[in-house]
Computed example of a mutant assay.
Amino acid sequence: MTDSARKHYASNRSRKRGYRGLSAEELRRQRHQRLIEAGTALFGERGYTATPIEAVCSQAKVSTRHFYEQFGGRESILHAVYDALIAEMEDIIRTSLTSGRHSLNLRVADTVESLVHYLLDDPRRGRIVCIEAVGVSEAMEKKRRATTHALADLIQRYATLMAESGDLPERDYRLPAVALVGMLNELVAEWLTEDTGLSAAGMAREAKIMFRAMIFGAQHYEATDHAHGEAVVQDKAS
C-alpha cells in the first residue's frame, strides 16, 4: 500500500470512528441525550419561555450547529422532552398494573399514586408536563390532547377488566378515564403552584384516596333507565 493510500485509509477510519473512538451515530445519540437532559432541567427550573436555545446548548455542552442537526428549534426540543417524560409515565402505568399480587382494583390505585410520585419527586417533570407544555402552540396542544387520550386508553382498558371481574359495573369508562387523567394533571399543577400543605408523598396518597373514592362511588351507582339518550343513575345504597 502506498503512503498516499495509507493516509487515505487512516483518514476514512478516523472519520468513521469519530471522537474518542465513538462513531458519528454514537456521538449524535450522546448529544441528543444531553440535550434532552438539559432541556428537562432548564424548562423544569426556569420555565420554557425563559430558556433560550443557547442556554440548553451551554448546559448540554453541545454547539448550536449540532443542536439544529437534531431539532428544528426550541419548541422542537420541548416536544422531545415532553415525549420522553410521557414515555416514562406509560412505562410506570404498565409496570404498576401488571406487577404485584394485589387485586386489580388495588393495583390501579397504586398506579395513580406512583404517577403522582413520578411527577412530584422531581418537580421539574411535573412542571413540564402539567404547566410548561400548556398553551405553547396549537401543535403542542394537539400533543397534550393525544397524550390525555393515550393515558386514558390504558386506564379504560383496566377499568373494563375490573368491570369484567365484578369490581365495577358494566359501562363505557372512556370519559371517567379522561376525567382521571385531568384530575391528576390539576392536582400536580396545584401542588406546584400553590401551598397545599402536603409533601409530594402526601399529595400522591391524596390522589390515591380520591381515585379509590371514585371507584367506591362507581360501585354503588348503576344505570337504571335511559331518557332522551342520557343515562339516569340511582344510588343503590339508598
Rank of each mutant, 00 (worst) to 15 (best):
S4M: 09
R6S: 08
Y9I: 15
A10Q: 13
A10R: 13
R13S: 11
R15V: 15
K16Y: 13
Y19F: 12
L22A: 12
L27V: 14
R29W: 12
I36M: 07
I36R: 03
E37S: 09
E37W: 01
T40W: 00
L42S: 00
G44I: 04
E45K: 08
Y48N: 04
Y48E: 02
P52C: 00
I53F: 01
I53D: 04
R65W: 11
H66I: 08
Q70F: 05
Q70C: 06
G73I: 00
R74L: 00
L78K: 00
L78Y: 04
A80G: 06
L85I: 08
I86Q: 05
I86G: 03
M89L: 14
E90C: 03
T98E: 15
G100L: 03
H102K: 09
H102Y: 09
S103E: 08
L104A: 01
L106Y: 08
R107L: 01
V108S: 02
D110I: 06
T111G: 03
E113C: 05
E113Q: 14
L115F: 06
L115W: 04
L119E: 05
L119I: 08
L120V: 03
P123I: 09
R124C: 05
V129N: 01
E132Q: 03
A133L: 07
A133P: 05
G135C: 05
V136T: 01
V136R: 02
A139P: 05
K143T: 15
A146N: 12
A146T: 09
T147F: 07
Q156G: 11
R157T: 15
Y158D: 07
L161S: 14
A163I: 03
E164Y: 08
S165V: 10
P169N: 10
E170A: 13
E170K: 12
Y173M: 01
V178D: 05
L180H: 11
G182Q: 08
G182D: 10
L187G: 04
V188F: 04
V188Y: 01
A189V: 01
E190P: 02
W191Q: 15
D195K: 10
T196V: 07
L198A: 06
S199I: 07
A201C: 09
A201K: 11
M203E: 09
M203Y: 09
E206M: 10
A207D: 02
A213F: 12
M214V: 12
E222I: 10
A223I: 11
A223K: 15
G229Q: 09
A231N: 11
V232D: 08
Q234N: 09
D235R: 11
D235S: 12
K236G: 14
A237Q: 14
S238I: 15
